[in-house]
Design a protein around this nucleic acid. Sequence first.
DNA 1: CTCGTAAGATACTGTCCGTATCTTGCTTTC
DNA 2: GAAAGCAAGATACGGACAGTATCTTACGAG
Lengths: 198, 198
Amino acid sequence: MERKGASRRRGEELEQAILDAAFDEFRDAGYAGFTMEGVAKRAGTSKPVVYRRWPSRVHILMACIASRLPQAETVPDTGSIRGDIVALVTVAHRRMRLVGQTAMLGMLTDVSTDPEVRKILVGSLVSELANLLDRAVYKRAIARGELAEEHLTERLRRLPIDLVRNEFIIYGTVPREAIESIVDEVVLPALRARGAQV
Amino acid sequence: MERKGASRRRGEELEQAILDAAFDEFRDAGYAGFTMEGVAKRAGTSKPVVYRRWPSRVHILMACIASRLPQAETVPDTGSIRGDIVALVTVAHRRMRLVGQTAMLGMLTDVSTDPEVRKILVGSLVSELANLLDRAVYKRAIARGELAEEHLTERLRRLPIDLVRNEFIIYGTVPREAIESIVDEVVLPALRARGAQV
DNA sequence: CTCGTAAGATACTGTCCGTATCTTGCTTTC
DNA sequence: GAAAGCAAGATACGGACAGTATCTTACGAG
């Protein structure tokens, strides 16, 4: 099924075309309907070509989703830790919506029996947000004097992301009120309890 | 493949035998390896018999797992809300371990596109714990005077379970220290912030 | 021009879901 | 206690899809 009147693509060009096709397939067919045959057909190529680059369905799925997520999102400096955390959680939620609830769960499922693949997923979908939280929110709050390094435990560091992820995974949607209740009823009180002036 | 020297089972007896077989299949083959063929073979019957009772793979999976979870677990009255919450979270964690990380994720995935089935899952795996938390923990704390009804928001009501579920789903394990940091660094501070004397 | 590499086509194995069809044993009813 | 009916159980099938093997062919490098 070679594409008519077109030369064979190779290397980077072909790889991008397949990732594009994969993303279209993901968007149109959903997580469960995402098939290697569909990807190959959309890309105007064949399965072995796809398999030469990604060893399995879940690998290319993660790759195509990761490739579509904005790489270096920023969180505006709102002047207070509350505003910054709300902004961060909003960014996190936007990223999750790009992935989708079913796909997020599906990838976590696929990955849960394979530590190798798990690393890839956690690296591209989880760690990035955690770093952003540290860099863009906590560091600024420390500079402002609202927070001290020693107020932060590991748990508090990841608390906002844990809560919004849970909300998204279980309920599928995270309305504005949910974000605010997470921040005002849980995160800020927990920070204050350790001495933060927030 | 009718079992030799045995009369045909019917009704309740057959149903239980299939559920037993399903649970064995689940334990031995895991979530991904759980197949209807396997269940039928183990139960000494055939697929149509299984399909007459449960309309799909995920239905019987949920049914067999739910049937193996202790129905009415109790949370000991430890005399303080902290102890009670730790105990509740420990119970929740034990239930989750019985299900397993992969199966939990897998069921959530399967269910995420079908509100009908979702209700069944949420009813048997989520609501039960929420009720337990209300009945066994918050009610007693209110009776003790540590807590007042109006201190409790919806978010705080489900906070302990949300956090332990997240921990289990993402990290696969919830060690004692995690439980304690959840309770001491997050849940109790959040309750105190709303006026609870805990 | 030749040669090697990778693209692309095709077909195959294997697995499993869900269903259709048929036989047969058990139970109920007259 | 025979006939009728119902559900159990066997078997086989259609369809989808993962992943692989094999072959041909375009194309770039030298």
